[in-house]
């Protein structure tokens, strides 16, 4: 069976948890520094990095085949188009 290679070591999971906690501390710290409109984007970038770690390691995305990977990418693209068009609509009313 191919399941043998799908086992993520406890140590890897622990390291990812450590990275997620560090990133949480970073995002809290960054919020105390006033960077104007940049603050929101920095917070979103850190959140996206954390989400990526959870997806790739905890949710085993790195072991998934093309069907799951590309359908996921399509969903994110769809969300991006939805967000883009809504802002486009709101901005030119």
């Amino acid at each position: 069976m191919e399941t043998e290679s799908h086992i993520v070591a406890y140590k890897t999971l622990g390291l990812v948890l450590g990275a997620l906690l560090v990133l949480t501390a970073v995002t809290v710290g960054a919020s105390y520094i006033d960077l104007g409109w940049m603050n929101v984007w920095i917070a979103l970038m850190i959140a996206s990095t954390k989400a990526g770690l959870v997806l790739v390691v905890f949710m085993h995305m790195k072991f998934e085949g093309r069907a799951v990977v590309w359908s996921f990418v399509s969903t994110v693209l769809f969300l991006a188009i939805m967000i883009g068009f809504i802002f486009w609509d709101v901005a030119f009313r």
């Binding site: 993520v8 070591a9 406890y10 948890l17 390691v57 905890f58």
Partner: peptide, 9 residues
Amino acid sequence: SFFVAASIT
């Protein structure tokens, strides 16, 4: 989330 991932391992 770590606990759940560890339980799957």
